[in-house]
Design a protein around this nucleic acid. Structure first.
Lengths: 215, 215
DNA sequence: TAGATTGTTAATCGATTAACAATC
DNA sequence: TAGATTGTTAATCGATTAACAATC
């Protein structure tokens, strides 16, 4: 069974294989990928095996073939489309984020309830949230990015699930309650930063020359 | 040993306990927290046990006591400080992000190499990256947020490590090479979104009424 | 051929879950 | 007391790693 960490590692391998391709290489070995991504060579081979990717004994993996296979796995030749809810700081940054565009992911439209956001110009249309159900159905959208305030995110999610959304990228700290067939990927900025502070405090390697040692 | 997932779960418990506190509760049980955070009650008790948090047999956990303990664990009464490198879309959104301010995390200053960014007004000072070493040492900074372009992130990281940074929150897709005592938390926006698309494609629950079924 | 690498099976490791005594 | 909940030990589960045959 393929789980999230498999997928994410393979996406990292893809990134690394692209880099090797750019540098003019034709072949790549599991230990190259392992070193670049920070896992063991066995892990790389096991992951490839799970996705049916075969290499050549002694000869490693053919980079062109790998890139083709990755394109098949991740539908690299198809434009992927999603919508974004909540045009606050994070929302408007994501709309402009080049990392998505490079990979042919488009945020087709954004939705908000604040009229000033709806009037604004952001490079993509911004509609009132009331129109989201119609938009989802007309454009056949399956996923949504949630960058609304945490107080309203559960309600927003419930409505989007009703409209047919089955995958969420959730930027709020809320743990969303969703039906079993719905997937939520959480990005909790505070959690990542606070856990970093925790590590640092318990680390013995911080600069002991600091007079004023605050975190 | 306390690992990242322990810390992040406990931070989620804290969030949930605060909510219960706001609602006027005095006591909370492991099953309450479990349900809210989406883990098992045993997991909650085990995590608490790891952090030395004790409850009352039959009586659950005292919310006031819990909140005090969480404040101790996560230095909730102290201002936490960090810096940000790269004032692009993501960087400038993070500077304004309220989720940090609410939790007493301040981004003291930002750094960039683009003169137009340095002139801009963002609510915090923006300096040229050349000044980062001086700033880190004068202000005793241990952590940095990386929102620079992926091509330059390794070089930026190397310089920051030299200046004494031992914790990074990395928003680029690069896997950073750092010494063993340095911790990196990665937030790869593309990875999270692309893996969501993968899930959706392999799901049997997407709307089969869609004529045009693109991802 | 010899050496290096893949691919898979088995072993290990670690985290989660189950079980249950303690006890309020 | 009886019932419910904690806290910990043991069992299970799953993912990673090791081992090694296959083979280019």
């Amino acid at each position: 069974m393929i789980i999230k960490s498999n997928i994410q590692r393979v996406l990292r391998y893809q990134h690394c294989v692209s880099n090797f391709y750019e540098l003019g290489f034709d072949k790549i070995y599991s230990h190259n990928l392992a070193e670049a991504v920070g896992v063991s060579p066995e892990q790389v081979r096991k992951d490839f095996s799970e996705f049916g990717i075969r290499g050549n004994k002694r000869g490693g993996y053919d980079i062109h073939q790998l890139l083709d296979t990755f394109q098949d796995i991740f539908h690299g030749k198809v434009d992927k489309r999603t919508i974004l809810i909540g045009m606050g700081n994070i929302g408007s940054a994501l709309v402009k984020y080049r990392g998505f565009k490079k990979k042919r992911i488009s945020i087709l439209a954004a939705f908000d309830i604040d009229p000033s956001k709806i009037k604004g110009t952001y490079g993509i249309p911004v509609y009132h949230f009331d129109e989201v159900d119609k938009f989802i159905n007309e454009n056949c959208i399956h996923t949504a990015i949630l960058s609304v305030p945490v107080v309203s995110v559960q309600q927003v999610t419930d409505e989007l699930v009703k409209s047919g959304i089955i995958g969420f990228l959730n930027f709020t700290p809320a743990i969303l309650q969703v039906p079993a067939h719905v997937v939520v990927n959480n990005i909790d900025l505070y959690l990542e930063l606070e856990s970093l502070f925790y590590y640092i405090r318990t680390s013995e390697h911080r600069n002991i020359n600091c007079k004023e040692d605050k975190f």
